[in-house]
Design a protein around this nucleic acid. Structure first.
Lengths: 144, 144
DNA sequence: TATTGTTATACTCTATAACTATA
DNA sequence: TATAGTTATAGAGTATAACAATA
């Protein structure tokens, strides 16, 4: 195994541990909000990308379709999304965020991300730039 | 709210979504191995840092003590860790990885990280450097 | 026959609260 | 009384397999 391969393996290891730990820390921020992190992520994506089918949304969030079905059922019950029929394909649905969701979303996001934003503010601008670039690289890494 | 604060909020948002998605993707790599990702992370940390108390290990992994109790119970049942008594404080335990764990670990890690290492290899060296720096920044972000 | 989505079911991960033992 | 760890319990998150409807 060459040096580059070894280095990449070490990076995979470090990145995995860092990502798992940050993910746990973010999830544990569970008080004071009515939406779970997963629900919030789905709504954020819908707002950013516009209406999507459940399958498209599942693909964006890297979950399997049945997992998204559950998230959407909860959100629909709370009046935060509505489903409409696809214009030409009767199998598909289109999920839209409601006005109620849009009104909630900014406050929810601010509360859920308060700890992280606070920590990020303690970094140098250069370090924040590194994390911006890293976020983009990670998203690209996840593309099919 | 100033421009920097807004930018930091946007970074918090993007980083959260990227980290959640990568974490899900990594967790879904669940076939062909006998250890779960959480168990593997605990063993990796124990091997890297040497014997730790359950409480110290929980702090490293950013989980609450009862969560680590469960992970350790499984690992102990599989003969992958052993607990010894603390030399002077009867309340504390020391967790050690066994030879069996050390023999398993490299193969398990390679299998679990194969997808990620493959993807990382498709990046440029400069991008891998970005992710190396980002991993370190994230770990620092998590410090209490 | 293939695709989209849902239902049914089960497992992993993690937390909080209450308890035990030791300091 | 405070600390380290465990037990009990519950909820969030996710998956696979089987099913229904539509293409």
């Amino acid at each position: 195994m060459g040096r580059t391969t070894l280095d990449t393996a070490a990076l995979a290891h470090d990145l995995r541990l860092a990502v798992m730990r940050l993910s746990r820390r973010l999830r544990s921020q569970r008080a004071d909000t009515s939406l779970t992190l997963t629900q919030l992520a789905a709504l954020s994506t819908l707002r950013a990308k516009g209406p999507l089918t459940p399958g498209e949304l599942a693909a964006c969030e890297r979950v399997q379709p049945p997992s998204m079905t559950r998230v959407l059922a909860t959100l629909e019950g709370a009046g935060l999304v509505v489903k409409t029929r696809h214009a030409t394909d009767g199998r598909q649905l289109i999920v839209h965020v409601t006005d109620r969701a849009i009104n909630l979303l900014d406050d929810e996001i601010r509360m859920r991300e308060a700890w992280l934003a606070q920590r990020l503010n303690e970094l140098s601008p250069a370090e924040r730039d590194e994390l911006r670039r890293a976020s983009a690289i990670i998203e690209r890494l996840l593309e099919p």
